[in-house]
Design a protein around this nucleic acid. Structure first.
Lengths: 210, 210
DNA sequence: TTTATAATCTAATCTTGATTCAATTATGGC
DNA sequence: GCCATAATTGAATCAAGATTAGATTATAAA
């Protein structure tokens, strides 16, 4: 036998992070493989050793951002605190994820479109099956993410903590407001991530108060 | 002399609308000039008679969507009704604009990025000056749009209709929630535009209630 | 009608970038 | 040290699509 793919995992993650940064700066199509490669001191060709093609790299960026966020929010949602506390903590975690990783946050808004547009039939996505499968899985995770918020709102309504509202739409409103933070947030801005989170919590929890 | 550019304006508007539709379906980069041209039974080359290049066409799509929306919201904001009524009407108008013209609504979210990425220095934008100028003007209009919401919230706070909040952030939250509607809204969905608007109004006005 | 200009079209260009290839170098396990 | 595999690379491909060029056609105004 031979070498173990020891540090490969590290490199792979580095590339994903770099890609997220470049993506935030230029958007999917305006981002070249060369741009991404340059960030990690590689050539474009080298990226193909780690990712089948540009589409898979985009997918990796989005998967990473979403799964990290889900990892922090899921446990909160599953805890058995009052809905109101859970929702507050979930909002804080979401805003925190977005403001701490603005690149991923913005990608989650802007690059989703690019992901949908990938012509799965075409070229290198070879087994369009593999790509399609992973992409579908990603969108399911995304739905799951939204569902966590929706269900928490419903929970609060049914146990009398919140006033009755259309939980599905209110959840979408919340996510829209949060995602938008990823679009305008600047680390150098007037407010820190925590402060923005506090305002979001105040806004939505008040909106749900009985 | 000769022919008056009689129907040109009409054609131009048709092209813009068609472009907005295609853009919503595929996104800026995945949209080819040929795709857009096909919608209005023209060839790609013909589009260059109406628009200097693809970037200008994108700009035209965004300008049109925004100015139409501003046209409906501005008079409301400038009226002298209670802030609460104005804000409600503004939200209704915004959601209505988005759900009635989903293509423009989505473009306002997704394609803004493409607009920012335009390499003004490059090629055909010739006088990058002209393009840059119009683009800057567009972004100013966009800020103005946001300011209308922000100011109305402030107004309500200062005249005691609303509780004190960070008006700038709350306004951004509202716009994020609204814009997001353009992303998920489907004419065939469970709720009509009006119903969605009612929920948004209920949510944000409640959040501001004293 | 004539005529100038608007609108279009077809058939090239021309660029840009993704992707592929064949070759080279590095490294962990034996 | 030797080997198999991982990592990378520079130098081609190759395709897609925006844009341009050179006609051609349509139409309003005189």
């Amino acid at each position: 036998m031979a070498r173990k793919p020891a540090d490969q995992a590290v490199h792979r993650d580095d590339i994903i992070k770099a890609a997220a940064d470049v993506l935030r700066e230029h958007g999917y199509d305006a981002t070249t493989m060369k741009d991404i490669a340059a960030r990690v001191n590689l050539t474009a060709a080298s990226l193909y050793h780690h990712f089948k093609n540009k589409d898979f790299l985009l997918l990796a960026v989005l998967e990473r951002g979403l799964s990290l966020t889900i990892a922090t929010i899921e446990p909160i949602q599953q805890s058995d605190k009052p809905a109101r506390d859970k929702l507050s903590a979930m909002i804080a975690a979401h805003i925190n994820a977005i403001t701490s990783h603005p690149a991923s946050g913005a990608a989650m808004v802007f690059e989703i479109k690019a992901l949908m547009n990938v012509n799965t039939a075409a070229r290198g996505n070879g087994d369009s099956s593999e790509f399609t499968k992973r992409r579908d899985a990603f969108f399911e995770q995304r739905d799951y993410f939204e569902a966590m918020f929706r269900e928490t709102v419903k929970e609060g309504i049914s146990n009398g903590e919140f006033r009755p509202v259309d939980a599905a739409i209110v959840a979408k409103a919340m996510l829209g407001a949060h995602n938008w933070v990823g679009v305008w947030y600047k680390a150098s801005g007037r407010l820190a991530g925590d402060e923005i989170a506090a305002i979001m919590i105040d806004t939505f929890v008040t909106a749900l108060k009985k």
